[in-house]
Design a protein around this nucleic acid. Structure first.
Length: 583
RNA sequence: GGUGCGGUAGUUCAGAUGGUUAGAAUACCGGCCUGUCACGCCGGGGGUCACGGGUUCGAAACCCGUCCGCACCGCCA
């Protein structure tokens, strides 16, 4: 059938008779000579048809873009002036001797020379995948998966598959539900994570487990979220958080070294609390040089209390923080105003002050359309605090802590991109640790920030009960360039602690038994200390391929409304099917 | 559930403030061309302006609703 791939031919093949299979990438008919760019998954090579071979030439004239063809021909070196430096095989060409049209093609609904709209790209995904940019990303995905298996197996982890069809648990992300035909009115859930199974494997004495598996979550989507996604799931017995973190660091370093030829230094760790203080987010992009500075001390004499009283609820904490934009003078006043308006509209941020620093390191200009009375002394204190240099712009927010954090983080991300402060070539990983165990919901109830199987740092059961919102958990996230790449924790191995956590999140004894009875029972039979983590494979590929959407890393992804435009799923089912399930 | 942007030829897009027959590029069809390489030149066909309603003498444009795509908020233990 085929002797070579198009893109792999070179001058060592000169004068060889080769057989190639692939698609017509483009064609150029010059009446007495006809050129074809022929493509397969390896690349492109030029095929040349000469008029003196009359029959063959007539046949070649019929060729159109995307016809599937087979070519036999002789590899020839091109004249120097005819070389094409834009393609890898540009110094040679194939003089066609035989052409077989395997299949004709209608004009394809994808433009090979420009970006297509996402709906067309998804509807005709099989054609979109013919584009080399998309195919290359899948290739990197394949290579990465191999590296992960190699690394994990050489570190003595064994791969075990856990069920996709599992038990429905209303906690956490919504489940995709599968009706059971045999058991009327009962449902399976598609696994949103192998969490419980991998912990049970630890109880089984499987010392080191890993798996690359699909997970399913029925939640609204984003550019970095798909309803089904792949997770590198890891768990080990008799280890602490340092051990798991070390394994992940080595794994990530291995992947980045092999795929990107990038070496990581030792990955720093910061606590959740510190991350919120310094960056306003638990997913900081550390390529961005801007940080948050607390100004509460400096501005404590200022009458901001009125502002707070007016807008905040009595229980909400207030934060005054600033970012300093290097050379922020280049930002047009309009830009700042737009950002401010956006923030007010979206997040209801209460007060914003901008200060521009002049050559003498003092204030040039600030807008104060508020009642705050900031004098020159205070301004110079602020300038010192945020390390502002001449021509820098300082932006100060006053408001509810959560919103101030949110807005300033978005501000610095947006401005960082606009002023090219973020180097897209760099990868900056960081561990975020010590997340709070619980967060208080609007209805006053506690829920777990991570998941209820995470071990609290506090071992004092009485303290846990009295001040649950102050408990820190043994959890850790790996963040690279602002993306949460992995999340894990040391798990509870103590039956009593596990039950207290369930109690604290308002789960009755009865519910506990009904939902997690099998799991709690297992705890009675000598549960080892264990810890683990899960890495988002799709997001890792997204970073490795510099993609802006997770869809680019998946062969057949879904749209943001969880639809597959190609197969038209989800779809309605027939009455007969319905009857089989429901009756 | 909410906010914003968008939906015009097979494809990618342009169509100020409503006004003759809705344009360009590319793809497609026909012709010319021996070194092109996203070949070039000449000619041609191709539109339910997402869908439904409304305002108007007149709507691709304005208004309302629906559907779809993208980004974001809520959500994602």
């Amino acid at each position: 059938m085929r002797t070579h791939y198009c893109g792999e031919l070179n001058e060592t093949n000169i004068n060889e008779l080769v057989n190639l299979c692939g698609w017509v990438h483009s064609h150029r008919n010059l009446s007495k000579i006809l050129f074809l760019n022929m493509r397969d998954w390896s690349g492109i090579v030029q095929i040349t048809f000469l008029k003196k071979d009359k029959k063959l030439f007539q046949q070649a004239k019929k060729l159109k873009n995307e016809f599937c063809i087979k070519i036999s021909g002789i590899v020839k070196k091109r004249n120097l002036k005819n070389e094409n430096k834009l393609i890898k095989t540009g110094s040679i060409e194939i003089i066609a001797k035989k052409l077989t049209i395997i299949n004709v093609s209608e004009p394809i609904p994808i433009d090979n020379h420009t970006t297509n709209s996402e709906d067309i790209f998804l509807k005709y995904r099989y054609l979109a995948l013919r584009k080399s940019e998309l195919f290359k990303k899948l290739k990197i995905r394949s290579q990465t998966v191999l590296l992960i298996h190699k690394f994990m197996q050489s570190n003595k982890f064994i791969q075990i598959e856990t069920p996709i069809l599992t038990k429905v648990t209303p906690e956490g992300a919504r489940n995709y539900l599968i009706p059971s035909r045999i058991h009327k009115k009962k449902f399976y859930a598609l696994s949103q994570s192998p969490q419980l199974f991998k912990q049970l494997l630890m109880i089984s004495g499987i010392d080191k487990y890993y798996q690359i598996t699909k997970c399913f979550r029925d939640e609204d989507l984003r550019s970095d979220r798909q309803p089904e996604f792949s997770q590198v799931d890891i768990e080990a017995a008799f280890v602490n958080e340092e051990k798991i973190q070390k394994i992940v660091e080595n794994l990530i370093s291995f992947i980045w070294l092999k795929i990107k030829n990038v070496t990581f230094n030792k990955i720093k760790k910061i606590s959740f609390k510190k991350a919120m203080k310094n960056y306003g987010t638990d997913k900081p992009d550390l390529r961005n040089p801007m940080k948050l500075f607390d100004l509460k001390d400096i501005l404590k004499e200022i009458k901001y209390i009125d502002v707070i009283k007016k807008n905040a609820q009595s229980t909400e904490k207030i934060r005054i923080a600033a970012i300093c934009i290097p050379n922020g003078i280049v930002l047009k006043e309009n830009k700042i105003k737009t950002l401010k308006k956006e923030s007010e509209k979206k997040y209801g941020c209460y007060e914003l002050i901008t200060i521009l620093v002049n050559e003498k390191n003092s204030l040039v200009n600030y807008d104060l359309n508020n009642s705050l009375n900031i004098n020159k002394q205070i301004i110079s204190k602020i300038i010192k605090k945020v390390n502002a240099k001449p021509k820098d712009l300082i932006i100060i927010f006053i408001g509810v802590t959560k919103i101030v954090n949110n807005v300033l983080n978005r501000f610095k991300t947006k401005i960082g991109k606009k002023l090219n402060l973020i180097n897209p070539e760099i990868f900056y990983p960081i561990w975020i640790t010590d997340f709070p165990m619980f967060k208080k919901e609007k209805n006053g109830k506690f829920c777990c920030l991570h998941h209820p199987f995470t071990q609290p740092k506090c071992s004092n059961i009485e303290q846990m009960k009295s001040e649950p919102d102050k408990i820190i958990s043994k959890s850790y996230d790996l963040v690279i360039n602002g993306y949460e790449i992995a999340g894990g924790s040391v798990r509870n191995h103590n039956f009593e602690v596990q039950k207290i956590i369930f109690n604290l999140i308002g789960m009755s004894e009865k519910e506990q038994l009904k939902k997690f009875g099998f799991f709690l029972e297992a705890f009675k039979y000598g549960t080892p200390i264990h810890a683990g983590i899960a890495l988002g494979l799709d997001r890792i590929i997204m970073l490795l391929t510099n993609s802006s959407s997770i869809r680019d890393t998946i062969a057949f992804p879904k749209t943001t409304s969880a639809i597959c435009p190609m197969t038209d799923s989800p779809n309605y089912i027939s009455k007969i099917l319905k009857k089989e399930i429901c009756s």
